[in-house]
Amino acid sequence: MASAYIIHLLILICIYLILSLSLNLSVGYSGVLNLGHIAFYGLGAYTSALMALAGVPFLLCLLAGGLVAMFSGFLLALPTDKIKGDYLALVTVGFSFIIYSLMLNLDEVTRGPLGLPGIPRPSIFGFGFEDNFSFLILIAVITLAVYFIIQRIADSPFGKLLEAVRDDELAAKILGKDTFKAKAFSLAISAFFAGIAGALYASYITFIDPSSFSLMQIIPIISIVIIGGLASLPGTVLATIILTLIPEALRFVGFPSSILGPMRQIIYALILLLILIYRPRGFLGKVELE
């Protein structure tokens, strides 16, 4: 029993890791304050779930989930050349609202608030990941791959270009850089991984409904990125683990689950507020959020 619970927690941590590492690429490295990350996550989940329910093999569903999210990430990047700062953040919020309301209202496709049940567990070349332990191994491998890919991007000259755009976009332009292309790429890649996370989530829980993808769900993830530190991948990992475990502690104190849910949200939001007020660089970050 206890080990089943730990496996479940580890899987959740992996999903959060993919989400927050990819968000750090767009928010931390290229400085695009993207509050619509959950929309990418949801697009990945719904795309892959619908395909999986239609009998498409898992790997294709996973890829399609990533690609659909990636494409929408590119679309969301289009206005970044003109709109900056808090208005851009609002555009991403609006984007999140739209995707959420599509999930809720496109009844014929998404079954609206009823959600999509019976999503098959992953199966790769005949090997099924029916039990949670094998699923954990699958998602751990993918999470590691995502970590190394994002780290490699961050360390490459392209990653330095992203940081330059974040620090001073005009100065980067004056050095002849196509800053729009850089931001569009980073947002698209970031969205791709969020889509992958969504596809994995859908195939793990085997049921999705719009409530997992509302705007408010961005709070834990943005908290992780800010608490761990912008442009700090080890910080993100540490923060993901801590933030996933803290609310679990409440479970042992013995609160009923009807109180546990909202309490967890309050804890995330409070931690985020305290960090924003007292330690805007996060714990392992060198970059101040602006």
Partner: peptide, 15 residues
């Protein structure tokens, strides 16, 4: 208008 979070070398490398 330097890239404040990058090092001197990284700033120059971008040019």
């Amino acid at each position: 208008r330097l890239f404040g979070n990058l090092t001197v070398e990284e700033n120059l490398m971008l040019a």
